[in-house]
Design a binder for these strands. Structure first.
Length: 261
DNA sequence: ATGGTTGCGAAGCAA
């Protein structure tokens, strides 16, 4: 079972690359973020032709999340069931092969102390509540997406460059930690304890080729799933211009392999 | 060198 997550920075712009990647990598479940599409523009029929059921939650301009699955897709659910969803289309859940899969797009926060930063902290706190309301830690829960938080200093290329910035602040890391403390594991970490593997690089200043990135795209697994997890890898190649010439997102794909239940 | 790039949408904002 191959479970992948990718912030595509506009599915409208990225669809050729997404299709190219899917054909080469055959994910069973694929979570997308930042589709920037309205629901009626989401190319569900294109994915259906490839054997994927899909569900999308988007407003057409910003944000937008999707779940694609070729192993079943049941009980789709948008948002957190309350007013927090009006902050954007940032959470979408579906049950795929017995796994409650979530595509997550945490607010960016812009700058520490800003109104947007406080909204980000609130959103993360609400996500912690949502987990406790909806699930038991013994359930098979996967939270996949762009968390816009680098869990540790080993997840940024140079901590000195991030002093005072978002994505690394103590309150953001504490809010993510509270989500993990509910009963989720940052599955990547167990396989790559040394860190310095990144999922996002700024488009500007040659950041990708200089290795100047952050790991902010995460696969969080509850205990029953982390026990089945055999690998988590970052597909760095998907951050390059593709063989077919398609331009990349500023994020790349994270792929987890799960053994059968 | 206080820069740089992309997407959306048609100027400037968000990331």
């Amino acid at each position: 079972m191959r479970l992948a997550t990718w912030n595509v920075n506009s599915l409208g712009a990225r669809l050729p690359l997404v299709l190219e990647w899917m054909a080469a990598n055959e994910p069973d479940i694929l979570c997308l973020q930042e589709t920037k599409l309205a629901d009626d523009a989401f190319p569900a029929a294109t994915f259906a032709d490839l054997g994927y059921e899909s569900v999308h939650h988007g407003d057409g301009r910003w944000n937008g999340v999707a779940v694609l699955s070729r192993v079943g897709l049941e009980r789709p659910s948008c948002g957190m069931g309350d007013a927090y969803d009006v902050h954007g289309c940032r959470l979408l859940a579906a049950t795929c092969a017995g796994i409650r899969v979530h595509s997550v797009y945490v607010p960016n926060g812009r700058s520490v102390g800003s109104e947007h930063y406080l909204t980000k902290l609130d959103w993360l706190a609400r996500l912690r509540e949502y987990l406790a309301e909806q699930y038991d830690p013994g359930d098979a829960v996967a939270m996949c997406g762009d968390f816009n938080v680098a869990p540790t200093d080993d997840d940024v290329w140079d901590p000195a460059q991030f002093v005072g910035s978002t994505h690394v602040s103590e309150p953001e890391r504490a809010a993510l930690g509270a989500i993990l403390d509910w009963g989720l594991e940052d599955a990547f970490r167990r396989f790559h304890p040394g860190g310095h593997v990144f999922t996002w690089w700024d488009y500007r200043a040659g950041s990708f080729h200089k290795g100047q990135g952050m790991r902010i795209d995460l696969v969080l697994l509850s205990k029953s799933l982390s026990g089945r997890c055999r690998s988590v890898e970052v597909d760095r190649d998907a951050r390059k211009k593709s063989p077919a010439g398609n331009k990349p997102s500023d994020h790349t794909v994270v792929v987890a392999e799960l053994a059968d239940a």
